[in-house]
Computed example of a mutant assay.
Amino acid sequence: MTEDLRRLVSLGCRVLGDADQGDLIWGHVSARDPGGRGVWMKASGLGFEEVGPDDVLLVSWDGEVLEGTGRRHAEYPIHTEVVRARPDVGSVIHTHSPAAVALGALGVPLRPISHEANLFVPPDIARFTATGDLVLTAELGRAVAAALGDRNACLLVNHGIVVAAPDVQTATVTAYLLDRACRMQLAAMAAGGWATWSAPQESLAKREHCYPDPLLQGAWEYLVRRLDRG
């Protein structure tokens, strides 16, 4: 079980690196430890595309490295506090998706102008605005968890994104789709003129049609195949 989790976390990191969500050595993927000891999390000092199973650490609720070698990320409270607050969450991802940072800074709603945004709205995507600085304390981690609520994603305004899902596979695809949704909206806004988007009822129907669990799993499998081909 532990080896499977470490492999999945490392795969999620490499998929996101391949999707241009890396930011030098920053950003992290984690998975809930099935033994309740904390989270299995990417080690600090590595880019997403460099992470292998041996670079995934078990980090306790208080930030102690219990298994693995290397340093933990300073922002571990994002992961530990979201997992603590959400029994349904098995994986948390934080990236500095450039498109999501740009859209969040504009203060406009995320609009379902393409399929991808329907996974997140309606209602509008959650936003954390208490600080644009790093989330370095349990108190700030709890504030992020509160802003996220029961949603699958949250914009950390002027910072990045947080995604929460039952497993690494779903979390990775969710982070991928959020980045694409933000890119699509920024492209439409840059083109000027009037953009159209799905009404709430249609948006919810598209969520059910486009993103049921089996299709999200299929998207994960494709992204891993694409990574292997690269």
Rank of each mutant, 00 (worst) to 15 (best):
F128W: 07
F120S: 02
L8R: 02
S10L: 05
V83H: 08
D133F: 14
A100V: 09
G47M: 01
L58R: 03
V144S: 01
L46V: 05
E3R: 09
L215C: 06
D228M: 05
L110G: 02
L119Q: 14
W26T: 10
L178F: 10
N158W: 06
R7T: 06
E208R: 14
A130T: 13
D55K: 04
G160R: 11
T196M: 14
Q201A: 15
A146H: 14
V224F: 06
P109Q: 02
G47Q: 09
R229I: 02
P200G: 06
S97P: 08
A19G: 12
Q169H: 08
L103I: 10
A146C: 13
A19L: 15
Q169D: 02
I113A: 11
E49D: 15
L136A: 00
A130N: 10
E139Q: 15
A191V: 04
L16V: 01
A99K: 04
G70A: 00
D33H: 05
E3A: 15
H209I: 06
I161P: 08
C182Y: 09
I93M: 05
Q185Y: 11
E50K: 09
G132F: 03
G141D: 05
W40S: 01
W26K: 00
D33G: 02
F128L: 03
A188W: 11
D23S: 08
H209F: 11
A175Y: 09
A102Q: 09
R207I: 06
V65I: 00
A74Q: 12
R183G: 05
G36H: 11
L58V: 02
I161D: 12
Q185N: 05
Q21C: 04
W40E: 02
V89M: 03
P122R: 02
G52F: 07
Y176G: 07
P123N: 11
R111A: 04
G107H: 10
S44P: 07
L136T: 12
G107C: 00
G160S: 07
L103A: 09
S203W: 07
T69I: 03
V163F: 05
E208F: 14
I161M: 14
I78L: 11
G17T: 04
N158D: 14
G27N: 06
V83I: 15
P122Q: 09
Q201W: 11
D133Q: 15
D54T: 14
H159S: 03
M41I: 13
